[in-house]
Design a protein around this nucleic acid. Sequence first.
DNA 1: TGTTACTATATCAATATTGATATACCGTTT
DNA 2: AAACGGTATATCAATATTGATATAGTAACA
Lengths: 224, 224
Amino acid sequence: MSLQQILLGLLREPGTGYDLKSVFDERISHFWSAEFGQIYPTLNRLEERGLLESRVEPSEKGPNRRVYSLTRDGRKELLRWLGSGPAMGAERFAYLAQLYFMDALGDVHETRAFMTALKQRLTEWLGRLQAIEAAVATGHGAAPEYYSDGGFHRFATLRMGILSVGSKVAWCDETLAAIDRRIALPAGVGAATERRSGRGAGPSAPDGSDHEPCSATPHGEVAS
Amino acid sequence: MSLQQILLGLLREPGTGYDLKSVFDERISHFWSAEFGQIYPTLNRLEERGLLESRVEPSEKGPNRRVYSLTRDGRKELLRWLGSGPAMGAERFAYLAQLYFMDALGDVHETRAFMTALKQRLTEWLGRLQAIEAAVATGHGAAPEYYSDGGFHRFATLRMGILSVGSKVAWCDETLAAIDRRIALPAGVGAATERRSGRGAGPSAPDGSDHEPCSATPHGEVAS
DNA sequence: TGTTACTATATCAATATTGATATACCGTTT
DNA sequence: AAACGGTATATCAATATTGATATAGTAACA
C-alpha cells in the first residue's frame, strides 16, 4: 500500500533492488519490511509510471547492477505523500490473535509458556533497538544514518520503536503476573483450569477483575 | 498469513462470512482486520481443505446464509497453530515511514503539524479501547465477549492494545517537545530549518542529543 | 580443474489484500 | 406499483506479499 512511496523515499539516493532489500532488513525493519519478490515488481511499476528511472552499470562483484533513481515526478509524488497526513493502516499482531483464542487449549500453563516465549522475543527485539540508540547517543557511529540531514526524523522513528516494544514487554509482565494469580487460586474454585469462580454470566466481576485492577503495571502509567 | 487460522478461531461458533466481517470490525480490530474480498475466498479454501464445513440456511432478512463451522480437522489445525509458539510477523507503520522521510519537506513546522494530527488519531483510538475496558471493569455489558469462557485471554489482548497505543501517544508528546525545542533555537544556529548546530558530521553530539536525553518522557519509564 | 560456497541480482507461482461492484431481500416513499 | 434506501450477502479485478527458485560472478578449496 505504501511500499511504492517508501521506495521513492529510499531512492532519494540511487540504488539497486538488492541495495534496497538490505536497507529494509538493516535499517527500517522496525516499521516496514519487504522481500525481493515485491521490491522488483514495484520498481518496475514505478519506472513505468515515470516516477523512477534506471540505468545498468557493471558491478565489481556479481552481475550487472540496475541502479534506480528518482525522477522529478517521483520526487513530487513523494512530497505529495508526505504532505497528505498520517497514513493510519490497521495494525496486525498474529501473536495477539493466538492469545485471543488460547482458551481453546484449556490450560493456563500453556498460556503462561506462550507469554514467556513472547516476552523473550520482544525483549531481544527491544535490546537491538536500544543498542542502536546507545550507539547514537555515545556517538559510536554504528548507525551512520542518524548523523546526516534527516537524523532527527529518523531518530524519532527509532524512539517510537523503543517505546512501543517496551510497552509490550511491560504488558507481558502484567499479563504473566495475572496468570500467576490465576494459577495460585485454589484448584476447586472454578470448574476446570479455564473456568471462572462460579458467578456464571453475571457481570458483577468479570474475568478482568483479577487482571486489571491489581495488575503489576496499572495502565495509567503509560496510557494518558 | 494467519487469516486462515484466525477464521478457524472465530468459527468456534458458526457464522457466515458477513458475520465474521463484523467481528473483525467491532471486536478484534486492535490486532487484525479483513475485508469481504479476502474472507470469502479464504473460507472457500478452508472448506476445500476440509477444515470447515458449511450449510445454507434461509435468512430472516436478506439472501440465504451460508453458515460455516469448524470440522474436527479444523479444530486440530487451530490447536496446532495455538501450540506452535508466538507468530512474530514484522510490524508495519506507514506513518513512521512518512516521518522517516519527512526531512525532505525541509520545514520542521510540517513535521509538527504531522505529529499533532497523528497524536489526535492515536488518542481517539486509545479512547475507544479505554471505553471498552471501562465497560468491562464496571460490568456494563457493552462488551459481552469478555464475560464468557476465554474472557481472560481476550481481556489481555485488549490490555496490550491500550498499553501499546498509549505508549505511542506518549511518544508523540516526547517528539512534539523535541520539535518545539528545535523550533525555539535561534534561527541562525544551523544552515536552514533542517540544519544542525554546525558541529558537522562529528559524532560527539548527534541529532538525538536534543531529543532523547532531555525528552519529555525518558524511555526508562516504559522500556525496561 | 572441478566443487563448493558465498555474495549479488532477479524472477516466478502461490497466496493475501484492497477497493469496487454485484445481488437479494425488505421497508418506505411517491 | 415504481422508485428509493438500507441491510445482508457475495464476487471480481487489481495490487501486494511471501517463499522458493534461478542466474552471475568471484573466491577458496580439494
